[in-house]
Design a protein around this nucleic acid. Structure first.
Lengths: 227, 227
DNA sequence: GTGCAATCTTGTCAGTGTCAAGTTGTGCGG
DNA sequence: CCGCACAACTTGACACTGACAAGATTGCAC
């Protein structure tokens, strides 16, 4: 996308792949990979190219946003040809959709055993901090294939976890309208998370633990009794 | 960005410019642009190209997100050559930065004569609904030139309006920590606005007036007394 | 009028997504 | 053990994009 910052292929073909992906170099099972002999350095089959592309994409998104991902760049990072990613993700939208679906899955498991609504909110914010790339893509519908099956099922699963956390709040604590309480809780958590990972709260929160700050924030919603 | 959906240039050169920009096409003679006749159909100078490009960009962003804006596409919509936009905005980042700066200016004036914090929140959300393109770009720092002077001054101005609204809340109503109250209010409004314009609340809010919903939401923060 | 600066055009280059067709490796039935 | 279908990857091509450079046109101060 930005030709000025992308050097020639030779500069980027070194093994600077994501640390998250567990080893972009296949190393299948001690296979006969010629180490540095004159032949081709990498085997024809990558081993886990899909995971490597995902990991590299997450790195790029976390650092420069979703619009900075380039399939060709990811291919270079993984040390494969420029069209290899398409075989796993169909196209750019397919890659981002896969990331979003994975994100909703991760969010669902993060919310899995939340104690109460306040705990769910803290987990929501923590998820956004720990998986900022996923989080950004999950809520950017114009980048996604809306009717993708994996995406919709994962999103439904995560949505169910959220709704469960809201309905667990005792009725006298959440005001007259449960629907409204859900929107309020989601808005507060989502807004805090969004502002946090876009560095719009850097001046306000300072060095304090964001989890703690948000915990205090939730005290301003849903207070059945005054302390 | 997506060549598959973009036809040849001749298909997009028709006068489908933004309706928001007041007269992007000069229409010197009022006649339609002749396809292949020798005479130049449009004058050399556009008249208000900067505004036309901005308007077209806002249309595209509102419809397909910031990643869908293409300087060449905007030039086509305005009926100018592919390099004309660069003269006004330097590059793509410059265009988006100008949009963000304009957005913070609009937000500042929208917050100008807000009554109380609740009113400021309602105006914040209304701004996001009425200027979704501006809003999206304003909080996507990776798309912007961070040290742009116009941007930083406009942002500071809007930030001041927000802080003023928070500090106008009586101390006993906002809890022990004014800073925390500000973060809470901003998070709630920002989260609601973000979820709203990304259509993540379509099922929840239904046909209800979003302003009203958010007004009710704010009642769950900052309640000095029980009703 | 003349000169100048702002505005816009034309041309070019490297980078990108996507499709099509070919190549290489893997696993499986026989 | 063998061949073969299929998955994984490569090569090549095309239309598109952002950015830059150099030239053409216009409005405007003087």
């Amino acid at each position: 996308m930005n030709p000025a910052k992308a050097g020639p292929a030779s500069e980027k073909t070194d093994g600077s792949a994501s640390e998250k992906a567990d080893g972009p170099v296949p190393e299948k099972t001690g296979g006969p990979v010629p180490e540095k002999t004159g032949g081709p350095a990498r085997p024809y089959h990558h081993g886990d190219l899909r995971r490597a592309i995902l990991g590299a994409a997450l790195d790029v998104i976390a650092a420069e946003g979703p619009s900075a991902v380039s399939l060709r760049d990811l291919a270079r990072r993984a040390g494969v040809s420029h069209a290899a990613p398409a075989h796993h993700f169909k196209d750019r939208v397919g890659l981002l959709t896969a990331i979003a679906a994975e994100g909703f899955g991760l969010l669902a498991t993060a919310l899995d055993d939340a104690g109460d609504l306040r705990d769910a909110g803290v987990r929501y914010v923590r998820f956004a901090r720990e998986h900022p790339a996923h989080f950004q893509v999950m809520f950017a519908p114009e980048l996604l294939r809306a009717n993708d099956l994996e995406l919709t099922t994962a999103r439904t699963l995560a949505g169910g976890r959220l709704r469960a956390a809201v309905s667990a709040v005792p009725a006298e604590g959440r005001g007259p309208d449960a629907r409204l309480a859900g929107i309020a809780a989601w808005s507060l958590a989502h807004g805090f998370a969004t502002l946090l990972i876009s560095h719009n709260l850097d001046g306000q929160v300072g060095g304090q633990d964001p989890d703690e700050v948000f915990h205090d924030l939730t005290g301003m919603l849903f207070r059945p009794e005054q302390p």
